[in-house]
Amino acid sequence: MRKLFSGLVTMVIISSFILGACAPAAQPAPAAPAPAQTLTIYSGRAESLVKPIIEQFGNVAGVKVQVRYGGTAEMAAAILEEGKNSPADVFFAQDPGGLGAVDSLLMPLPDTILSLVPARFRSPKGTWVGISGRARVVVYNSQKLAENDLPDDIWDFTDPKWKNRMGWAPTNASFQAMVTAMRVLWGEEKTEQWLKGMQSNNPKVYPNNTAQVNAAGAGEIDVGFPNHYYLYGIMQEKGESFPARNYYMRGGGPGSVVLVAGTGILETSKNKEAAQRFMEFMLSPVAQQYFASQTFEYPVIAGVKTHRLLKPLAEVKSPDVDMPQMADVKGTVNLLRKVGIIP
């Protein structure tokens, strides 16, 4: 026993030395000029989706890239807590809400970057740009329903015939962005009516889009309201026989709004030049083709082909929503709280 204990003590001492030795090495030296440029990215997008293309940038540009992966909300909160000491150069967010939350810490981007992306896919203040697009869709169980059974407009799901057949993920940022689009397109009152109508149809509440799409495939629900690309990730694993399909609203409207995942550069970054090169690369045809073919998303620049399984962006009846108005996340959260959908 004594041996065990002295062994423990020795281990602790040795490990604290190792840790001590590692500590200075692991953190970026602020003053010393680095031999090669290092770019630090906080990514709210999953490693499995973006790692290959980020690595490719590192190789092409000769920049050492380090990435911290996590949820978009957690990453945004961390950047806010870190304040001016944030080690991050670039924030790669899953949704505009995350970028909006740290908006005040982001630097204004040069026109050379902003001009690459259509206005509806970038920040109204010019602090971030969209890198890939995702459409809001209806996912339906293809054993129970056909596309013809589904209504033209998302408003029609308030019909009592959908009672107990639907699921949604109201805490999800993309869902909330869709509600913001509703407020812009329909006005406050109609949006509230839609939310109440949906509530009275007793939708099942899912924590995220993945769970929702899985539930649709399992027949737990007949229809759900996710982003378009989750279905394809699941089909990769479960095969194309997975009995769920996407439906783009025939009549367009807020139910088929196209949102973006995007990036911004932190004002406190010491590697702004490398960060800008990163963004330019992400908007290059190579990277855009990657998102289109590997993650089943929509490219945000012209001239890139979408995946064969996807409905081309030009055919999606996506409404034109004014970006500055889309920034009012707070108003949407308050409305959702008022109706009692979120706490």
Binding site: G71, E74, A76, A77, E81, T171, N172, A173, V333, I342
Partner: peptide, 9 residues
């Protein structure tokens, strides 16, 4: 949910 929806710290 507060963090997730409104980034309300």
């Amino acid at each position: 949910i507060q963090y997730q929806t409104s980034f309300d710290r």
